[in-house]
């Protein structure tokens, strides 16, 4: 997991919870990747980015030092989260999903919701932002898949428990790996708790121009970049989305392998 505070005053000023940016490290040859905005410091004109090293671009990004520049950042993109006073809201974050979830939980708290946060990660080293969720949550449940920290469970377990309470939560927000969102939605559907998910698909432009990010929602194609990134989780075709996310698996691996091999050879 990596974190950076990036100077982008116009984005910092315009951005609202739920929105994301697209960046590329250089102008020639670099790919464009979407990253969620984890936080903002309007007084400094900066935004916070949190990412996981999964391929060439995220690895290159992780090598940048304080003071380095990123050639291109465009945003804020996507429709902002619809924030209102629902009553009790359960916010479920998995892995890197905690980053985009934090500004949403914060905004939900600010308008007077009771916020129950459930954070999960594969292991202790991958759990992020626990302290900051503690600040904005009325109740915080933490779990790890392997039990290396806090409760040993998948987030669906505590989510089910929270849904079983009387009264049940009025609304759920779930952000994390696609399979996790899929299974969380299966739980909340059983309890009839409306659920918003935030999707992170493959994108090129992020402005509606290419349609590469399309997902099936309620049987119709929607563009994550302009119609989303948030959708009614009970209507998203997650299985198809997972397949589309894997579209370039081989090439992504090839690019990453080449990059690492190149780095080894030049002795870095």
């Amino acid at each position: 997991m990596f974190w950076a505070e990036v100077e982008a005053p116009l984005i910092a000023q315009a951005r609202r919870p739920g929105q994301f940016i697209i960046l590329s490290i250089d102008s020639d040859g670099s790919e464009r990747i979407p990253l969620t905005i984890a936080g903002v410091h309007s007084e400094r004109g900066t935004i916070e980015l949190i990412w996981q090293r999964v391929g060439k671009t995220t690895a290159e990004l992780a090598r940048l030092q304080a003071g380095d520049a990123i050639a291109n950042i465009a945003g804020p993109l996507g429709e902002p989260t619809h924030i209102e006073r629902f009553g009790t809201v359960v916010c479920v974050g998995g892995g890197i999903g905690n980053a985009p979830l934090l500004p949403i939980a914060t905004a939900l708290k600010q308008v007077g919701n009771r916020v129950v946060s459930i954070l999960g990660a594969r292991d202790k080293s991958r759990l992020i932002l626990e302290d900051r969720f503690a600040e904005v949550s009325d109740e915080l449940i933490v779990c790890t898949d392997d039990g290396s920290y806090a409760r040993k469970a998948l987030v669906t377990e505590p989510l089910q428990e929270v849904c079983q309470r009387d009264p049940k939560p009025n609304q759920a927000f779930v952000i994390g790996p696609t399979p996790m969102m899929k299974f969380c939605c299966q739980v909340t559907r059983r309890f009839d708790v409306p659920t918003q998910v935030s999707l992170n698909t493959i994108m090129v432009d992020g402005t509606g121009m290419c349609g590469g990010c399309r997902v099936e929602v309620d049987g119709a194609a929607k563009f994550v970049c302009v119609d989303g990134p948030e959708f009614d989780g009970h209507k998203v075709n997650f299985d198809l989305m997972i397949k589309r996310l894997n579209a370039y698996k081989k090439q992504e691996q090839q690019a990453y392998d080449q990059y690492r091999q190149h780095r080894c050879q030049i002795g870095l």
């Binding site: 290419c210 349609g211 997902v215 302009v226 589309r244």
Partner: peptide, 19 residues
């Protein structure tokens, strides 16, 4: 224009279908 039309036919969201 900047928003591609699709045909709204079955299978248009499969991997390998591009605008």
């Amino acid at each position: 224009a900047g928003l591609p039309s699709f045909m709204n036919i079955e299978g248009e969201s499969l991997v390998g279908v591009y605008s």
